[in-house]
Design a protein around this nucleic acid. Structure first.
Lengths: 402, 402
DNA sequence: CTAATTTGTAAACGGCCATGACGAAATAGT
DNA sequence: ACTATTTCGTCATGGCCGTTTACAAATTAG
């Protein structure tokens, strides 16, 4: 007789839907849709055995999802097994779409992703946004969104929501940019600047990048640490398939973890923060380079060509990252550390020293370090997919909205 | 139109009970019991409005809980309000009990806690266990458990489970002690040594201490970092009312967070780990004292009497703790840091330097540091209460077991 | 061509919560 | 003192939802 280790939260605590029959139905609709989505194509019977309901119950759930345009019937399967073949179900490619948008320092990007996870429309606009006021930037972004929405609608998709990734801290209300140093925005309510046509979510680009890694990465576990360096150095902590945001929404400030407690003063007030060793400016200074537009490309190019001072700078940055990550890994015991954003492109020169520090210092078994293959697309895709996940997690919302 | 920030896990992912009517009923039974337990005494109507069900539904749920001996009717309330007074319900003091046990380095302790959270029986046995083999220690513990169970049964309680707190790492199976350095136990399956009479859970004493703080602490938030120093320095991360255990169950190793990357070598393989500055041995060495039984008492006494070298040692330990905690706070953004275990008793001399480091270094708003008032009782109470929480979280288990 | 197997659906069933009504027990007003 | 009002707990009814059972359809094995 062994009881499980305690980890359950009180019942009903984190539950979105009330524990009533209708809530149960909503959750079961979501489970059916999730099952089909995860497998790509599944018969009713297969869904039933997978989620633990009977075929009859699944039938009625599927009927409803088809009526809402979320599932579609592909026709009979062609199996080698005995028995009547099932009728293949698939998530519809003509229904709700997630609109993702990204406000970068030197570009704007928007895309539409259908329920299947396929990017169906996109638009990009290059141009420096650093220091520009929010209103005109958001206006340009709105124009891109309108173009993408129009294109999506031509393919029989309708926007289920808009998610915007920004390079800065976002309040827990999911609308307000508290501060975005590289844009010089402060306490900017994007909800007020965007047309109120779609349900809106605004979040940090690092968070969306981590979610993209979680949902789209191959073999990405459910517990990992996603490290990216766009503005400063941000980490996202993914625990049990969910993002850890912190009480004030400030979790993941890896850039200000002390690496050398007596090191140089940091604008944050601390000393020897990681950013003083692995931040953009610090690496440039150590490498003896001038600031430029495409920093990552420049650094990678120099390192590629054997520039020893650049290589040394990146090596040192890797060492500092390794030290900071050791603390995080010892504290959280994640299944992996994933390097994303700019770090992904520089990983060949960062990884050796980083891994040396990390494996020699971690108390337990070593924590594998992997590199994101999503690259700079991560935040945009994560944003669009977060809308799609919203529909997948509670399909009934689309019925309420039409 | 604002959509919430994404944090939901896929539906059914962390769900213990299937989404069927019976599962719904079980969850609603738990919600009723939780509501009464949280308030101490509540009428059916009050429960109904609190959990969002109708009075009729709550009535049948309460009937069942009374039949199982988990709730009892206290009789009519005496309110000053108009209308028929409700009949007060309270969690029963005569039903299942949680048996908590603690294996310490120099003592064994067992207690029984009823559903109301009241300690109803206890037994302690002093004596050094350091280096003794597991079998005789567990045999002694079993004797204490039997005594406590007998006493509890005389008060019409029956043991719903046994939870054992140990000073070491426990495998995720909740039975096996992977290693307990201060006992010199390795890969010891306590489930095989204890009589198989009750559902068993074994866990780290730091984890149980943190859970005690979560459930019993006054004003303790749902997101905090619990730091304790019994063996080495352990931290427990509580997120959203649940314990973060890590993939291998090794989360919370605050003792091996690098504080000074070029510091002294640590047995773990790293350099300058927190334990090298704030660990038991390190503090003793810095204070110029000999190892003894009641170390905490000794240190507190010396500091109290004004021993400057001891005070300096504790000040330095506080500084190191502050540096390590800065990293953790920046990464997790908890609502508070709680000092428990031995650190609670030494907090007067640790806190000043600790808070200085922490507040000056954290990027965001300062994170309050509080001191646990549970003291050394924490792990034992947490263990017993974890069993009680198990019943509260799924009351239907008691029906299945009789 | 028949037996076996599997799928999807329909009808009957049972469990569970909501609704509405009612008696019981208190207060407030006259 | 008596009535109106309010609130509580319960009962009967109804609707929703998944399960059970049965059956027709579609395929393979022999």
């Amino acid at each position: 007789m062994t009881a499980p280790l305690h980890e359950a939260r009180p019942p009903g605590a984190g539950r979105a839907l009330p524990d009533t029959q209708q809530g149960m139905r909503r959750r079961n609709l979501a489970r059916v849709l999730h099952a089909v989505s995860a497998e790509g194509s599944l018969s009713r019977a297969a869904v039933a055995s997978r989620i633990g309901l009977t075929r009859a119950a699944v039938s009625t759930l599927v009927d409803e999802l088809i009526r809402w345009g979320l599932l579609e019937e592909l026709g009979p399967e062609r199996p080698g097994r005995v028995g009547r073949p099932g009728s293949a179900l698939a998530v519809s490619g003509r229904g709700p779409a997630g609109i993702g948008a990204e406000i970068g320092v030197d570009h704007l990007a928007v895309c539409a992703v259908d329920l299947r996870g396929v990017v169906r429309a996109r638009a990009v606009r290059h141009g420096a946004n650093r220091g520009r006021p929010a209103a005109p930037v958001v206006e340009e972004l709105t124009e891109l969104v309108r173009r993408v929405v129009a294109e999506a609608e031509r393919e029989a998709l309708w926007p289920a929501g808009l998610a915007v990734a920004v390079p800065g801290l976002v309040a827990r209300d999911g609308r307000t940019v508290v501060r975005a140093p590289n844009l010089d925005w402060h306490d900017t309510d994007l909800g007020a600047l965007l047309p109120d046509l779609w349900p809106l979510t605004v979040d940090n680009e690092a968070n969306f990048g981590a979610l993209a890694e979680l949902w789209l990465g191959e073999g990405t576990p459910w517990d990992f640490l996603h490290v990216s360096a766009e503005i400063g150095i941000g980490a996202a902590v993914v625990v049990d398939g969910g993002l850890l945001r912190g009480t004030r929404g400030f979790a993941g400030e890896l850039g200000h973890v002390p690496v050398r407690p007596d090191g140089p003063l940091c604008p944050c007030g601390g000393r020897g923060c990681l950013e003083q060793y692995a931040g953009e400016e610090a690496v440039l200074r150590a490498a003896g380079l001038e600031p430029r537009e495409d920093l990552v490309g420049l650094l990678a190019e120099c390192a590629e060509q054997g520039d020893e001072s650049v290589r040394a700078a990146l090596r040192d940055a890797g060492t500092a990252l390794g030290i900071a990550l050791t603390g995080a890994v010892n504290l959280l015991d994640p299944e992996a550390v994933v390097l994303g954003g700019a770090l992904a492109g520089l990983s060949p020169w960062l990884l050796p020293s980083l891994e040396t520090e990390l494996t020699s210092r971690t108390a337990g078994p070593p924590c594998p370090v992997t590199v994101s293959r999503l690259g700079p697309e991560g935040p945009l895709l994560g944003a669009a997919h977060s809308v799609v996940r919203g529909v997948l997690d509670d399909p009934a919302v689309v019925a309420e909205r039409s």
